[in-house]
Amino acid sequence: MKLLIVESPGKIKKLQDILGAEWRVAASCGHVRDLPNQGYGLEPPDFNLRYTETKPDVLKKLAALARDADEVFLASDPDREGEAISWHLKDALGLSSYKRVTYTAITSQDVRSGLDSPRDIDMNLVHAQEARRALDRLCGYKVSGPLGRAVREEKMSAGRVQSPAVRIVVERERAIRSFVSTTHYGVELLFEAVENISEGWKAAWLPREGWLEEGQEYFLDQTAAGKIAALRTLDILSCEEKESRTAPPAPFTTSSLQQAASNALKFKPKKTMELAQKLYEAGHIT
Rank of each mutant, 00 (worst) to 15 (best):
I5L: 08
I12Q: 08
I18N: 01
A27T: 06
S28Q: 01
C29N: 15
H31P: 04
D34K: 00
D34W: 10
Y40P: 01
G41V: 00
L42D: 02
R50L: 05
T52Q: 09
A63R: 15
A66F: 02
A66Q: 07
R67M: 07
A69M: 00
D77E: 14
D79E: 09
W87M: 04
D91C: 00
R100F: 03
A105V: 12
T107N: 01
T107G: 14
R112T: 09
S113H: 12
D120N: 08
I121K: 03
D122G: 04
M123D: 11
V126M: 01
V126I: 01
Y141M: 03
S144V: 07
P146D: 05
G148Q: 10
R152H: 11
E154M: 09
E154L: 00
K155F: 04
S157L: 03
S163W: 10
V169Y: 13
E173T: 13
R177W: 05
F179V: 04
V180T: 14
Y185H: 11
E195Y: 04
G200A: 10
G200P: 05
W201I: 04
A204T: 15
L206Q: 15
L206Y: 13
G210E: 05
E217G: 07
L220C: 09
A224N: 11
A230L: 00
R232T: 15
T233A: 06
I236H: 05
L237H: 03
S238V: 06
P251G: 05
P251L: 02
P251F: 11
F252I: 02
S255R: 10
Q259C: 00
A260H: 03
A261I: 07
S262G: 13
K270M: 12
M273G: 08
K278N: 14
K278F: 02
